[in-house]
């Protein structure tokens, strides 16, 4: 086993354990904190895949903004009863069965993938010669300019929607 494979094995095992911890903790704050560790692992995996920009975005947006939002909401809600009540819904065995079936399905169709599309022009050398940010920016602002604009509208809708939903009703 080479060194990259060893690294990947560590990341895969710890990310699986962390995911299980995230969905099984009773206290949502503990869940969010495990999620933080998981996001840092995911960012490291992105670095591994030469996606430096996405690794930074993962840390800044997910770990920096999203999880803080979650913790704020947890603190706003009164979750004292949580400690005594049951964690799972009554149909949890069905959920476990479905997710097991999905794992089996995904692994089975993995073996069927024999043909991959032709390689694109963004090899590691091409990205290195231009810089990672430059490359992703050029693609984002030329080929994908329309989705980029639509994403800005979606974010605007989210801003307005969140304010409208959470504000006090004016009589």
């Amino acid at each position: 086993m080479t060194l990259p494979q060893l690294f990947f094995t560590y990341f895969a095992i710890s990310m699986t354990i962390l995911s299980v911890l995230v969905v099984t903790r009773r206290n949502p704050v503990h869940s969010v904190l495990w999620m933080l560790v998981l996001f840092i692992h995911i960012a490291a995996l992105y670095l591994f895949l030469n996606a430096e920009f996405l690794a930074a975005v993962q840390i800044i947006v997910y770990a920096g903004a999203r999880l803080v939002l979650f913790v704020f909401v947890i603190m706003l809600l009164n979750l004292k009863k949580e400690k005594t009540e049951k964690k799972y819904q009554d149909q949890w065995p069905v959920g476990a069965g479905i997710s097991l079936l999905m794992i089996i399905f995904f692994v089975l169709i993995m073996g069927k993938i024999t043909e991959l599309p032709a390689l694109g022009k963004y090899s590691i050398e091409a990205i290195q010669s231009e810089g990672s940010l430059m490359t992703i920016g050029k693609v984002l602002y030329t080929e994908y300019i329309l989705p980029f604009e639509i994403a800005s509208v979606i974010l605007l809708v989210a801003i307005i929607g969140a304010v409208v939903l959470a504000k006090k009703r004016i009589e």
Binding site: S19, K87, Y88
Partner: peptide, 22 residues
């Protein structure tokens, strides 16, 4: 495979937990 395993753990959490935040 790592992605599939994480996805399925998420599916389990989505279907089985009672807490809306989780």
């Amino acid at each position: 495979v790592l992605s599939a395993v994480m996805f399925c753990i998420g599916v389990f959490g989505f279907l089985a937990r009672r807490n809306l935040l989780i």
